[in-house]
Structure formats: C-alpha cells, structure tokens
C-alpha cells in the first residue's frame, strides 16, 4: 500500500533530508491506518491534502535549519563561476580573431554556457551527497544561467554584472561560513 507518488515526491523535494525522514514516516503510518479504516481513496486524498497544507511550514523549517541557504549558495557558485570564466575566455578568443571582436555571440555559445553552468552546479549539489538535491540545484542553475545570459545579451547587462560580481563572492562567503 503506497501513498500517492506525486505527493510523496513533492514532500521529499520540499522537506529537508532530516525532516523528510520523520514527516514522510508519520504520513505513511497514518495513510496506512486511514486506508484500512476508511478506504484507499480517502487515505490518498488525506495524504495529498496534508502534503499541500504542509509545504510552506516545511520550507520554513528547512530555511531555519540553514539547508536552503546552502542550496542557494551552491547554486549561485555553480552558475556564477563558470559564467565568469567562460565569458572571459570567449572574450579573449574573439579578441584574437580579426573582424570577430565585438560581434554578438552565437546561440551555441550561450547554450554551452548554460550546459557548463548546469554541470558545475550539479557537481556542487553532488558534494552534498544527495542526488535529489543535485538535480534540483542543476535545474535551478540552468534556469538562472539562462536568465543571466538572456539579460547579458539584451537589455540589462547591468544585471549580469551584478550576478557575476556580487553573488559569487557573497555565496562563497556563505558557503565558507556554513562549512567552517
């Protein structure tokens, strides 16, 4: 007798590692009890409703434990550092090629940046010994990198500069303070 898959996955994604252990256990225990006494459908409905109502409280709990700060720090590091390095590298390469200097960068270059940022962020997450967290970080990093690159190519390059220059040192400091 298994609880609804989507609700359970959502619970595990939202709750921190420690919280997921006992909250999922409690919900499973009550779910089995409800299935036996009121039927499977009522049990499944109750489970989904409990998860939906607990999301904000569990996120708050996770934030208080400091785990979310780590995820954000790893994400920012995973995005900012590869972007900074790749951007500087390609600027240098383009500057060495006659007639290429100052040209807009090709879409393939942007895609390569996003993929590298995603991989580095996944590596940051993997160091936390959690595949689930690594996937979440990689997805968040890819989104953030895409957003930063989109801005760097278009209307708001200042935002890109902020992402590169401010978030990388700030997140390094946060990560250092957490793991010291």
């Amino acid at each position: 007798m298994n609880p609804p898959l989507m609700a359970r996955a959502l619970l595990l994604a939202v709750a921190g590692d420690d919280q997921a252990e006992f909250v999922a256990g409690d919900l499973h225990e009550e779910f089995v009890f409800l299935c036996q006494t009121r039927g499977r459908r009522a049990g499944r409905r109750w489970y989904v409703w409990q998860v939906a109502r607990s999301i904000l409280a569990l996120l708050g709990l996770r934030m208080r434990s400091g785990e979310v700060a780590h995820v954000f720090a790893a994400t920012a590091l995973g995005v900012a550092i590869p972007l900074l390095l790749l951007d500087r590298l390609w600027c240098f390469v383009y500057s060495q090629i006659p007639l290429k200097d100052g040209l807009h960068r090709a879409p393939g270059f942007l895609a390569a940046n996003v993929i590298c940022a995603g991989l580095c962020a996944a590596f940051c997450g993997a160091t936390a010994r959690s595949l689930r967290r690594a996937v979440a970080i990689a997805a968040a990093a890819a989104l953030a990198a895409g957003f930063a690159l989109w801005n760097s190519a278009g209307a708001a390059p200042a935002l890109y500069v902020c992402v590169i220059l401010l978030i990388a040192p700030a997140s390094s400091l946060m990560a250092w303070r957490r793991f010291r």
Binding site: Q19, F22, V23, D26, L27, E29, E30, Q50, R53, S54, I55, L56, A57, L58, G60, L61, R64
Partner: peptide, 28 residues
Amino acid sequence: AYGMRVRREIAERTGRDVAIGAVYATLD
C-alpha cells in the same frame, strides 16, 4: 509523543484539523 500522535491528540481534543507540517514547525 511524535508528530502524528501530537496532531491526532490536538484534533481529538480541540476539533482542530492541523497540518503535520505546522505541528513539526511548532515542535522545532
């Protein structure tokens, strides 16, 4: 006294249907 039993105890005695997340946030 663990999360789900606390939740059930409160529900039975006060009639409040509280979410398990709220109970654990309060316990924390």
